[in-house]
Nucleic acid binder design. Structure first.
Length: 820
RNA sequence: GCGGAUGUGGCGGAAUUGGCAGACGCGCCGGACUUAGGAUCCGUUGCCUUCGGGCGUGAGGGUUCGACCCCCUCCAUCCGCACCA
């Protein structure tokens, strides 16, 4: 018997699969479609185990669906713009494009060495002209729809990366990529108006029944919708109005101060008339110099300064002090907040620190509050309004509504919905991205580059120095241009787009990757979409997955496609960890996929990674475990070789022995389980364990003669079930015994009659404790079982001297006798 | 603080609808084959035991004939958001 030699057979089959048409997919209305997609990688240079896990999962899904009769789209590509390429240019003087394409070449070779079933003809690389041309085209579409705008704003700036960042890319006040502190800068930047879609992005989360709840909750929190009242206070000294937003209008009679963000425009006006202006300015400067972390952490000290100016509470005419504070966020709501110390935790702390008034306006009738002894705010939305003029006596709900009605009737306020979500800052002061296709004309101002002039190509005469300006601004030939409108002197926008824009529509491009008239044809994107199964890491729960949902809705409104959500089902795989920590170079616990594949083969690597943990959980890397998977493949190889003669010999139409019937039952039970595990649950770990049990059962026949028909059936179905998991060994063994290509066969179906057992072992319990196992005919009903109970061998012994209270029978499971 | 998850042998994990806890794999131990074994095959392996059985799924309570599973109260770990008014 020849040895299992993965290196040899994997190379052989990969060559077969590499044929141009092997995995080519086209639209086909005769079969149901299935779009299986793994998040495309950044071409960092090498695959890591996270990639291997991602693609192994996706490949099982895709290959299973192919065998199950679906027309499967399973593409791969590269998220190829981004900083590392540019950093390589700065550090080593290589061109970002050269660096990127060399990495893509290397990683593609590694992906092919995994034996993945991709239609490589559809490969997408976001840094190629034929792709970013359409990224720019889409930017212009957004612009024309009023969803792209340039605005001066206080934005997040990372010194290390030399660029601005979107809110979603700031994690704990730090850059998502390089972990260095982010600070605020005032810059004119391009934004996408994602807030226009906030309501729909939130509401449609309900449609995403195939998404993990965790991800939906994260997006819900990120969007952060709240309902309340926006109303204004008169500021007599300035003859001005100042608006606040509140979610607790019911507490409006308890307002004792008003807090402004240091950035609020009213602060400057106050300084113009206030004798304390020097002090106020100093305070604002100090607050603004604090980092985002210091300013926005709930543990930070709340500080403020009284401006000396007051305003009027429109509900009761009361005079309210205006303070400037460090804890009010300028970008949210109106940048000004009403202060109700008695019914808000923060306001309580602030008022206590500065000795401000506290007026109780809500009491809890079920457990009346002892106001004199209260040492914190009462924030429950339960109770009755007090000290609230004509609203006194109303309960929370009634008061909440009545006070908003009053504000609207009197014309000083309006019901308002607010979101935590901010517009998406998309410009980057970097080179290796899609240039923003805008021209600034001295006469005409901001002008889009005409569609026929796209793409705006990246120039190569640039200097890769970091600073507040994009490297594009160092290119003469890029910068200077003529206005497409008036032909006069103009210059180009030198910022590029956030790479998350490129990745917000790549899955649409896969459906029509060679289209040179449009980003994609409507009928093609509609045929394949939505993605039936999207697979990737949880780290994109907000960023990529929210942006992509936004893009889909905009393109739907622009009539480019006809569905609401891009990803019907989402699978968030766990991380690959080793020795209790994520694999990382600094910890030295990295296991290289290349090494594992070189040593054991891709099939072993795939098998281990699918077997070692459920897909959603973190996976503990174990070198011994890998050997176990290798051992299993050897066992498969061996047993089929042992069965070889039987498989190849003609059927003798012999009846099966009892043992063979039982083995055949195991086979069909396994088909049932593996099918359900793979199709319904992504429970690859248990599917594989069932296959191991089947192979173990086959090994019991290694020294016996086996019925040829059964041997053939076992070999066939086992290889068919193994094919999605370990494609190479399955193809090799199939070719030894059977005609055709295992990967072009149909998924096996189980024979229901083969599964039926005549006898079944049930449990005899006394008071819920297992006392005996008995074999009985299958299919006895409750009544039969209850009658059977007293006749069981150990019944008398187990119930001796006890009183039988009742007998509980569960067909095919157990009999429980309750005694006293 | 708010929100979401997770907690089962020495380890990774299984138990899909409230019905035999620990499938499968790793490791350990024993046996076979062998000049040899770090190959392979077969077997044992939750803990305690007076061998009848007792205990056991983070802790404590509850519902039930019966709970890893449902309910309540905690604890621990991980993740997300975090002064959003």
């Amino acid at each position: 018997m020849e040895k299992y030699n993965p290196q040899e057979i994997e190379k052989k089959w990969q060559q077969v699969w590499n044929a141009p048409d092997y995995y080519r997919t086209t639209e086909d209305s005769s079969r149901p479609k299935y779009y299986a997609l793994e998040m495309f990688p950044y071409p960092s240079g090498n695959l890591h185990m996270g990639h291997v896990r991602n693609y192994s999962i996706g490949d099982v899904v895709a290959r299973y669906r192919m065998m199950a009769g679906y027309n499967v789209l399973h593409p791969m590509g590269f998220d190829a713009f981004g900083m590392p390429a540019e950093n390589a240019a700065i550090a080593h003087g290589v061109k970002p494009g050269d660096w990127t394409f060399a990495n893509i070449k290397n990683m593609t070779a590694q992906q092919k060495a995994m034996g993945l079933a991709y239609d490589w003809d559809r490969e997408v690389e976001t840094c190629r002209e034929d792709y970013y041309r359409w990224t720019q085209w889409l930017f212009e579409l957004f612009y024309k729809r009023g969803l792209a705008y340039k605005k001066a704003a206080s934005v997040n700036w990372c010194d290390t990366c030399g660029t601005v960042l979107a809110n979603e890319q700031v994690i704990d006040g730090k850059c998502w990529r390089c972990d260095s502190e982010v600070h605020k800068k005032n810059l004119a930047q391009w934004f996408f108006k994602i807030t226009d879609y906030a309501d729909e992005l939130l509401a449609d989360l309900d449609k995403l029944t195939g998404w993990p709840n965790r991800v939906k909750v994260m997006q819900e929190n990120w969007i952060g919708r709240s309902e309340g009242l926006e109303f204004f206070f008169e500021v007599p000294a300035l003859n001005e109005k100042i608006s606040v937003y509140t979610t607790r209008p019911d507490t409006s009679f308890g307002i004792t101060f008003l807090a402004l963000a240091p950035e609020h425009p009213l602060v400057e006006k106050i300084c113009a008339i206030s004798p304390k202006s020097a002090e106020i300015k100093k305070f604002c400067e100090r607050a603004r110099s604090q980092s985002d972390i210091e300013r926005t952490s709930s543990e930070s000290e709340k500080e403020g300064i009284f401006t000396g100016v007051t305003c009027v509470n429109p509900f009761n005419g009361g005079s309210v002090q205006i303070w400037v504070t460090n804890y009010v966020v300028f970008e949210y709501g109106t940048g000004a907040v009403m202060g109700v110390p008695t019914h808000d935790e923060r306001d309580w702390m602030f008022a206590t620190k500065y000795g401000l008034n506290k007026v109780w306006v809500i009491d809890n009738p079920n457990a009346p509050l002892d106001f004199a002894k209260m040492d914190n705010a009462y924030v429950e939305k339960v109770g009755v309004l007090i000290n609230s003029g004509k609203f006194t006596g109303m309960d929370f709900d009634a008061g909440f509504k009545a006070i908003m009605d009053e504000a609207e009737a009197q014309g000083f306020g309006k019901r308002k919905v607010n979101y935590r979500l901010r517009d998406w800052l998309i410009s980057r002061q970097r080179y290796w991205g899609a240039p923003i296709p805008v021209i600034y004309c001295d006469k005409c101002g901001e002008v889009l580059v005409p569609e026929e002039d796209l793409p705006v190509l990246l120039p190569d005469d640039v200097e890769f120095k970091q600073g507040a300006l994009s490297p594009l601004s160092t290119s003469k030939k890029f910068n200077e241009c003529t206005c497409p409108k008036c032909g006069g002197h103009a210059h180009r926008e030198t910022d590029t787009m956030d790479t998350f824009i490129c990745s917000s529509w790549y899955y649409m491009r896969y459906t029509d990757p060679h289209n040179d008239k449009m980003p994609f044809a409507r009928d093609k994107v509609n045929y394949w979409s939505p993605v039936d199964q999207y697979i990737g890491g949880i780290e994109h729960a907000i960023l990529h997955l929210l942006y992509s949902r936004f893009f889909t809705k905009v393109l739907r409104d622009a009539k480019l496609l006809d569905y609401d959500e891009p990803f019907a089902n989402l699978l968030t795989q766990g991380m690959v960890i080793k020795d209790g920590a994520k694999m990382s170079k600094s910890l030295g616990n990295v296991v290289s996929p290349e090494e594992i594949i070189g040593k054991y083969g891709a099939d072993t690597a795939r098998l281990f990674i699918l077997f070692a943990a459920p897909v959603e959980r973190d996976l503990d890397w174990s070198d011994e475990g890998v050997q176990g998977s290798y051992r299993f493949l050897n066992r498969v190889w061996r047993i089929l070789n042992i069965f070889s003669d039987a498989i190849k010999s003609p059927d003798a139409a012999q009846a099966l022995t009892a043992e063979e019937i039982s083995l055949r039952r195991t086979l069909h039970k396994t088909i049932k389980k593996v099918t359900e595990d793979v199709r319904d649950r992504f429970a690859f770990n248990t599917a594989i364990s069932a296959l191991m049990e089947l192979v173990n059962a086959m090994h019991a026949f290694q020294d016996k003669k086996i019925n040829p028909a059964l041997a053939r059936e076992l070999a066939k179905d086992l290889l068919l079930m193994l094919a999605p998991f370990v494609p190479h060994i399955s193809a090799e063994l199939w070719s030894k015994f059977f005609d055709g290509d295992v990967h072009k066969q149909s998924w096996p179906t189980f024979d229901a009659t083969a599964i039926v057992e005549e006898e079944i072992e049930i449990v005899l319990q006394i008071n819920g404790k297992v006392r005996d196992h008995v074999k009985i005919p299958v299919g006895l009903n409750k009544n039969d079982l209850e009658k059977l109970a007293p006749t069981l061998p150990r019944f008398d012994e187990l119930t001796a001297g006890k009183k039988i209270i009742k007998v509980i029978a569960v067909p095919n499971k157990l009999i429980n006798i309750v005694v006293k």
